[in-house]
Design a protein around this nucleic acid. Structure first.
Lengths: 198, 198
DNA sequence: GTCATATTGTGACCATCGGTCATTTTCAGG
DNA sequence: CCTGAAAATGACCGATGGTCACAATATGAC
C-alpha cells in the first residue's frame, strides 16, 4: 500500500499531466514549455523533473494512457471478426477514435514526425505501440488475407492513408473527411487482400 | 547590371544557402541553427538576416529553387496526357522525384507539419505551391475524370497516400517502397475517377 | 513530542535558440 | 585619397529544455 508521501507524489504527477494535456492540445507539443505546464498546475519548474526525465517521456506516458482503453476494445472486438472487411472496420473504428479529436490528432502527428530524428525515441514508441505499426496491423488481419499480397504492406498502405489524412487534417485543407479516407482505405485493402494480385 | 557589391551580396547568399541545404538535409530543419549555417559558410550570425527575415523564409526559398524545374517538367508533360492513367503517372513521376532523396523528403515532411501551427506560413506555402495541393491536383486531372467522384477528393487521396508514405519513410519502417504506393494510389484514383461510384 | 532521515518542492543557473541592432569593416566612385 | 553606402559583425534580448544545491515537509524510531 502507498504511503501518504507516495500518494501526494502521485497526485502532483496527475495535476502536472492534466495541465500538460490541456496545453499540448491547445498549443501543440513544441509550443508548450515545461515552465508553462508546471505554472499551470501551481508548481515550480524543477518539480517536473521529479516525475519525468524529459518532455518526450511525459508525452509518451500521456499517449499510453489515452490509447490504453481504445486498444483493448479494438483487440477484443477483432477476435470476433469473420472476414477482412469486418477486421478492417474494427481497426478503422479505432483509428477514427484517434482522429476525431482534431486537436489531439494534430499533436500526435507532430510528435510522430518529431520522432523521425531520434532513434531512441522511435524505439521507445514502438515498444509502447504508439503507432499502429505495420507488423501489428499485419498480425491483426493476416488470417483473413487470401491473396499473395503481403499483409504487412496492406497494413502499411492503410496506415499511410490514415497518417496522410492526419497531415491533410492538420493543414485544415478540408477536402477530405474521415469517411472518404476510411472507405478508400478499406476498398484498397480488400482489393489487395482478397483478389489475387497480378 | 549588378554592381560589384551586389554581386558580392548575391554570392554570400548563395554560400549561406549551400551551407543551409547541407545542414538541413543532414540534421533537419529544427535541429539546424542559424549560427551553424553562418559558421559553416564562414560568416557571423547577423549576416543571415541581411538575406532572409527568418529561418522559415530561407527554407521556402530553398524549396522553391528545388522544385522549380521539376514542376515545369510536370506541367509541360501533363498537357500531352491522353487519359487519367497517363496524367497520374506524370504526377507520380513528379512526386517520386521529391521522395527519392530520402534526406530531403524527411525535411519536407518536417516543415509541412511544422507549418500546421502557423497560418501565415501555410498561406505563404500555398502561394509558392510548396505542396501539391488538392486544388492544383484537381486542376491537373479534372478533364480526365468521368465519374461523379470529385476531382479534389481524388487529388487529396493521392496526396494523403504520398504524404503518409513520407511519414512511413521518415520513420524508416521500410515495409513500403515507392512503387507499392504509386501503384496503389493510381489504382485507387482510377477506381474513383473512371468507374461510376455508388 | 523530538529529532535524524528521506522525500517532495524550489528557483537560480546553464548553454543554446531565433532574432535585433548599434557598430565596424569593406569598397566603389569622385 | 576621401566619403557615403552597403556588407559584415557579435554583444545582446527573452525564452527554451534541462540541472542542481538547497529549502520545506512528512516519516518513523525513540
Amino acid at each position: 500500500m502507498p504511503t501518504r508521501q507516495q500518494e501526494k507524489s502521485r497526485q502532483t504527477m496527475e495535476e502536472l499531466m492534466a495541465a500538460a494535456m490541456l496545453l499540448f492540445s491547445e498549443n501543440g507539443f513544441a509550443q508548450t514549455s515545461i515552465a508553462e505546464i508546471t505554472a499551470r498546475a501551481g508548481y515550480a519548474k524543477g518539480s517536473f523533473y521529479r516525475h519525468w526525465e524529459s518532455k518526450n517521456q511525459l508525452f509518451l506516458q500521456i499517449v499510453e494512457q489515452k490509447l490504453y482503453e481504445y486498444r483493448n476494445v479494438r483487440d477484443r472486438r477483432i477476435e470476433d471478426a469473420h472476414d477482412l472487411e469486418e477486421a478492417l472496420n474494427i481497426i478503422w473504428d479505432f483509428l477514427e477514435s484517434m482522429a476525431l479529436d482534431r486537436q489531439w490528432a494534430k499533436v500526435f502527428l507532430e510528435f510522430t514526425v518529431h520522432s523521425a530524428r531520434d532513434m531512441e525515441l522511435r524505439t521507445e514508441m514502438r515498444r509502447r505501440q504508439y503507432r499502429l505499426s505495420e507488423s501489428l496491423f499485419a498480425k491483426l488481419v493476416r488470417r483473413f488475407v487470401t491473396s499473395d499480397y503481403p499483409a504487412e504492406k496492406i497494413g502499411a498502405l492503410n496506415t499511410a492513408l490514415f497518417e496522410g489524412y492526419m497531415v491533410h487534417n492538420a493543414l485544415e485543407t478540408g477536402v477530405l473527411n474521415l469517411h472518404d479516407v476510411r472507405e478508400a482505405a478499406i476498398a484498397l485493402a480488400l482489393e489487395k487482400g482478397i483478389r489475387q494480385s497480378g
